[in-house]
């Protein structure tokens, strides 16, 4: 388990981490999710030992490592821009940590081949990083980090520099890899879809604080704060409360807690239909509904309807 307790970090006058505490269970894949500048990378680098916290304690597997240099922490770190050793071949990149540990040559060679097989770079041993695509470089960086059998794998926006298609493939691949090797993993991302897709736990960060930690579903369904609610998915404001557009129920007649609205536009998005509404205070909101429901109501622009929230909402 990785435990951070009461972490503070300043850059000059800027308070980048404010009393951050989090526990990351063994074998989990935890995402640190938050907008750019919220302190995700700083927290990850503090865990890695690449930055020293001003206050607080970092423990890995029960040992206080706060004052320990990165090389003593048993971690693997993957950088957004790969940090490939440009003057070394793929083989030497992956072998680096093992050579530092003075493992026997034969063992290093077989381990490197095995890892390159796992990350899908078998046959690329002799290439230089400049001869690889971005996605291949990042997989090489992953193999390099995994080679030393870290207790903890730390990934700082590892797919951030890749294009959308490659990013999606790689994150599915990362999830499968994690299911195979089970190394405790922390993934930094600002992309909520990526976090929901790969992580089994998400910690949402905002302005140097952790707002909430939990399973993706729990965060989505029971967000603790308005920030978490709006960061994890689309929202609509109904009667001064934040709700999910798909929790809005439309009806022709009045119902309990229902608000009268006018339909402005109906957008068909394949299976789903987005109904853009305007309420009595002239504020806009969108409801998401299925094709069948929309057809049953026979919604069209200009129509007057009633809308209510199906589930308890978060106080705004």
């Amino acid at each position: 388990m990785i435990a951070a307790h009461g972490i503070h970090k300043h850059y000059g006058d800027f308070h980048a981490l404010r009393d951050v505490s989090i526990e990351i269970p063994d074998g989990s894949l935890t995402a640190l999710l938050g907008p750019s500048g919220s302190g995700k990378s700083t927290l990850l680098r503090v865990i890695a030992g690449l930055e020293a916290p001003d206050e607080g304690v970092i423990a890995i597997a029960g040992n206080d490592v706060t004052r320990l240099a990165p090389q003593g922490r048993g971690i693997g770190f993957v950088f957004q821009h790969y940090a490939a050793f440009k003057h070394m071949t793929v083989r030497d990149n992956v072998a680096f940590g093992l050579k530092i540990r003075k493992r026997p040559k034969a063992e290093i060679a077989s381990r490197v081949d095995e890892l390159l097989e796992i990350v899908g770079l078998a046959g690329y041993q002799g290439r230089y990083p400049s001869q690889l695509s971005g996605g291949q470089r990042q997989r090489m960086a992953l193999a390099r980090a995994l080679a030393v059998e870290p207790r903890v794998l730390l990934l700082d926006e590892p797919f951030g520099a890749l294009d959308a298609k490659v990013r999606e493939d790689l994150r599915k691949w990362l999830r499968r890899l994690h299911d195979e090797v089970h190394v405790t993993t922390v993934l930094v991302t600002h992309d909520q879809e990526e976090a929901m897709d790969v992580a089994d736990r998400i910690a949402v960060m905002n302005a140097g604080r952790i707002e909430q930690v939990g399973a993706p579903r729990d965060l989505y369904d029971a967000p603790a704060t308005e920030f978490v609610m709006s960061f994890l998915g689309p929202t609509a404001t109904l009667g001064g409360r934040l709700v999910r557009p798909h929790d809005l129920v439309l009806s022709r007649g009045p119902a309990e807690d229902a608000v009268p609205v006018t339909v402005e536009r109906v957008v068909h998005l394949g299976f789903e239909v987005r109904v853009e509404l305007r309420d009595g205070d002239d504020a806009q909101l969108s409801a998401q509904t299925t094709r069948a429901e929309a057809a049953a109501l026979d919604v069209e622009a200009g129509q007057s309807l009633f809308v209510r929230a199906e589930r308890p909402a978060v106080a705004a």
């Binding site: 890695a48 690449l50 240099a69 990165p70 090389q71 922490r73 971690i75 693997g76 770190f77 950088f79 940090a83 050793f85 680096f96 940590g97 530092i100 540990r101 960086a141 390099r144 980090a145 080679a147 030393v148």
Partner: peptide, 9 residues
């Protein structure tokens, strides 16, 4: 930094 995380002093 990558070298440091891989165990190099």
């Amino acid at each position: 930094q990558a070298a440091a995380t891989l165990g190099a002093n």
